[in-house]
Every structure is written in C-alpha cells, then in structure tokens.
C-alpha cells in the first residue's frame, strides 16, 4: 500500500505558519507523504497542485478569516473538475460554530484550537481510506 499523500497549504496572504509546519511534520512522522505548498496560495493553484501531485487529502491552514471567502471557490473548482478529494481545515480561528458551517459546505473535517491535535493523522487516514 503506497503512503498517503497530503497537500498542506495556507490561503491568501495569511502569514502564520506555525500550525501548518507542525501538522506537516506530524503527518510525516505518521508515515504520510506531505506536499507542503506553503503560504500565499489561491484556490486555482491549490487544485492544480492537488491534481499534479495526486494527493489523497487537501489540508488548509487557517489563521485568518480569508478562508471564509476562498473556500467556496475551492470547493466549486473541485466539483467542476469532478474531484472528490476530501478537504480538511485546521487553524486557530476555527470555532465550533465555524466547524458546523464548514461541514455544511462539504468540508470533511475541521480542527479548531480546542481540537485534540493528536487526532489529526488518524482522521486524515480515515478520510483518505474511505475515498
């Protein structure tokens, strides 16, 4: 079985990188291949990289409210191309109410600041295997 491939990106001009780097390393330590796209990413580039790299899951780091506006564009691009890649969000600004709203938009999982970070690799694994 090939290792799972996870894309990690940060949207727009959000410059906070602590969480994205920590999660990338955590996933790597759990045996996954991380495609770290880094900061300053917009939806078209994220979708292109997800296709080019044949990733199993897209992980977005959210430490600003920009995700509120970019997420719809990203989900629409994925749908338009018939891609059923699970999208997972994580970040300090995600509240419990936000997580519920995100699930309604088709986001597979959302990890806010009070979520248990040790659950992230297992959740990603479950989502990828369920595809």
């Amino acid at each position: 079985m090939r290792p799972l491939r996870v894309l990690i990106a940060t949207l727009g001009l959000d410059q906070h990188e602590v969480g994205a780097v920590a999660v990338a390393r955590q996933l790597r330590d759990a045996g996954m291949e991380v495609i770290y796209l880094g900061r300053f990413q917009l939806p078209p580039a994220i979708v292109k990289a997800a296709v080019d790299e044949a990733v199993d899951v897209i992980g977005l780091s959210c430490h600003s409210w920009e995700y509120l506006y970019y997420l719809d564009e990203l989900m629409a691009l994925l749908r338009a191309r018939g891609l059923a890649i699970p999208v997972v969000l994580g970040g300090s600004v995600l509240t419990a109410a936000d997580a519920r709203a995100l699930e309604a938009k088709g986001v597979a999982a959302a990890f806010g600041p009070t979520s248990a970070v040790e659950d992230i690799p297992a959740t990603i694994e479950r989502l990828a295997r369920a595809r």
């Binding site: 727009g12 001009l13 959000d14 410059q15 300053f40 920009e66 509120l68 970019y70």
Partner: peptide, 18 residues
C-alpha cells in the same frame, strides 16, 4: 493588515479578502 505587512495595496487581487 496582512496586505500592508506584505507591502501590497488593498486592491491587489490576492489582498481583497484580507
């Protein structure tokens, strides 16, 4: 704000949501 800290104008296409 984040565009200003990136030395970008607010009407830059990557800046508008921030």
């Amino acid at each position: 704000d984040t565009p200003t800290m990136a030395w970008l104008d607010p009407d830059h296409p990557a800046a508008v949501h921030a």
